[in-house]
């Protein structure tokens, strides 16, 4: 018994060691830096630690930016799940022997640099881009519609980017649903829609929650997409943090803002999870 426990512990240690070195230590470093201040050349000074940076970060000036980030991340999450669910469902139910191939196709875009794929969206969305070219060519519009550098472009780009993060957990959840359970619902005179709403959907809810978390967290921290596809009015909190680090060279302030974003994300995620677990899973 006890030797078994030692064995378990041994299996457990490499993972914990990895987490400690590459996750906990950097986290502590971020926290310590966030208590410091900036020297003349943008170095970090730790001689007088204080929570000043956190107080500054609470300034109302950041509220619109923070709301922007939440807006993009929420819209992206909802859209990604709405688009992914049917795809995952289709692959699971009708993929047959091509399931693996179809899943590989979902992952395929990852083989190309994220930046290049975002640039492709720029080519599609810009004033003289593909969409405006088609609309103008068909005589549907006389002037190009501004698509690039708008909220729409940011949400579109992020949804596209995070789609695989939603498809994969949804696929796993849907694939695990025993078709016999659905068949039983049909035998008991449930309509197709009823069987989906009362059987499949609740059973796949853990997948939906996983997809939501896997999309929302990277989406709220994404600064590349809003930067490339967004415009003057679409700045996000992640971009502000990046600016604080690179342009302002104020690592302490940036670290404080980053730490706060992390705490808020964790609290919101854990809170949502608990509510959902109670409501959905019971």
């Amino acid at each position: 018994m006890s030797s078994r426990r030692v064995g378990d512990l041994a299996l457990f240690m490499p993972g914990m060691g990895w987490l400690a070195v590459f996750f906990v230590v950097p986290l502590i470093m971020i926290f310590v830096v966030s208590l410091g201040s900036r020297d003349a050349y943008g170095g970090v000074v730790l001689d007088r630690l204080s929570f000043d940076n956190y107080l500054r970060a609470l300034a109302p000036a950041f509220l619109p930016t923070a709301l922007n980030s939440v807006k993009y991340a929420t819209a992206t999450t909802i859209l990604a799940i709405l688009v992914s669910y049917p795809i995952a469902y289709w692959i699971s139910r009708y993929g047959g022997r091509h399931k693996v191939l179809l899943l590989v196709l979902v992952m395929l875009p990852f083989w190309t640099s994220w930046v290049i794929r975002t640039y492709a969206w720029m080519i599609i969305l810009r004033d003289n881009g593909v969409i405006n070219g088609i609309l103008g060519g068909l005589g549907l519009t006389s002037e190009p519609i501004m698509l690039l550098n708008t909220d729409l472009a940011v949400i579109l780009g992020m949804t596209y980017g995070f789609l695989p993060f939603a498809i994969l957990p949804l696929y796993v959840a849907i694939d695990r649903v025993d078709e016999a359970v659905v068949a039983a619902a049909r035998d008991l005179y449930s309509s197709g829609r009823g069987a989906f709403l009362h059987v499949t959907l609740p059973l796949t809810m853990p997948g939906v929650i996983a997809a939501a978390i896997l999309t929302f967290i990277p989406a709220i921290g994404d600064f590349v997409t809003p930067d490339l596809l967004g415009g003057a009015q679409t700045i996000t909190i992640a971009k502000v943090i990046q600016t604080l680090f690179l342009t302002d060279k104020n690592w302490a302030y940036g670290a404080a803002l980053g730490f706060m974003l992390m705490v808020v994300t964790v609290v919101v995620t854990v809170g949502t999870l608990r509510v959902l677990r109670r409501e959905v899973i019971g």
């Binding site: 900036r38 000036a61 930016t65 700045i235 502000v240 600016t243 342009t247 302002d248 060279k249």
Partner: peptide, 13 residues
């Protein structure tokens, strides 16, 4: 820093 803080205010506002 006087420029940088104002720039952040401009961009984040």
């Amino acid at each position: 820093e006087k420029y940088q803080t104002r720039w952040t205010t401009l961009r984040a506002g």
